[in-house]
Computed example of a mutant assay.
Amino acid sequence: MLTYESFVRMVSRMRRLNVTGDMITSRRQAAEIRAFTTQDTLLGEHRRTGAQVTTEAVRVEHRKTTVRLVGRGLAGLGTALAYGVLGVLLYTGAMPLALAGAAAVAMRTASTAVSTTVFSANRLFEHSFYLDMLTSCLTQARGYHRAAATRRLPQNPQLIELHEVSFSYPGKDEPALHRISLTIRRGEVVALVGENGSGKSTLAKVITGLYLPDEGQVCRDGVDIAKVDQRELHSEVAVVLQNPVEWPMTAENNVRIGRLERPDPDGSVLAAAAVDSGTDAVVADLPRGWDSVLSREFQNGCDLSGGQWQRISVARGLYRDAPLLVADEPTAAMDAPGRARRVPIPSLTAA
């Protein structure tokens, strides 16, 4: 019980300790931390939180030691009293020596068994709290689980329709989307324009099926995407995000991961995606070309700028060649020539 209560009290501080530790040691934040001279602030917060966690751990161990000491003291007192009574009975002749010896062995065995039983019962009682927490989390997670597929997803849809779609993030009172209706036809390029936080990215994720609406429907050729297989749905979507995943592997695999199963024996598809996105210029500057590992976590790994990663992301989306391509500010970190580049999107412009 003591350990569980301490865990509940300290879980947020442990998370804060991990966050500050990652910020102190991460290469990504290093330049800005130095530029804003926040090293002392971060170290101070890390040490303060670490001291709180350490103090709590010491306090819990002191309490556990006190409980053990009291328990063992009472057990020892009871054992001493039992042996005292046994000695008196033996001294007065009320109990034969052989019987007294057997009683002493039985008391010792019983004491060990009782100690083991109490220890196991205490562990079982304490672990039941963790089990209750796990059960609660699993129950909550099942509420987010998508229903089994009952419809097949139309291939290469001609029409995507949103009917009175609303969506709210968990724990938020105000909806991110409220009764949105929209029609997108095959071959159209639709731009979502609005202020920061107005729900553009959320709407894009609802259109792609990454998020399911709380109310309303998103349909492809009349089929509600909530009723189709999730993996089949996502296989028909390509996304190019403002902050793409920086996969710690070679430049080639960073593009091919857009659709690993796509056949490209001669590398022509990869080359075309690289040329159309400007990734060919990025790869040309890498020491080992396409075989360069794009992560400093590995020896001889390479760092890329934000704009270079966005070019990789655009190439990844083109290589996926999905019927629906969603780009969420994909050129925000690029230089002017990169933003001015016209990227062909055959999956949207095909008839």
Rank of each mutant, 00 (worst) to 15 (best):
Y91A: 03
Y91M: 04
T92H: 15
T92S: 12
A94M: 11
P96E: 06
A98E: 08
A98V: 12
L99W: 15
L99G: 12
A100P: 02
G101K: 04
A103Q: 05
A104G: 11
A104S: 13
A106F: 14
A106E: 01
A106M: 09
M107N: 00
R108I: 01
R108P: 00
T109Q: 03
T109D: 01
T109M: 02
S111D: 05
T112H: 07
A113T: 01
S115H: 15
T116R: 00
T117A: 12
T117H: 15
F119N: 08
F119G: 06
N122T: 15
R123Q: 13
F125R: 14
E126N: 10
H127P: 00
T135W: 12
T135R: 04
S136C: 04
S136H: 08
T139G: 05
T139L: 07
Q140F: 09
G143P: 07
A147F: 03
A147K: 04
T150H: 08
R151L: 13
R152K: 10
L153E: 01
P154M: 09
Q155A: 08
N156R: 09
N156W: 12
P157N: 05
P157C: 05
I160T: 06
I160C: 10
E164P: 01
E164K: 08
S166F: 13
S166V: 10
S168N: 10
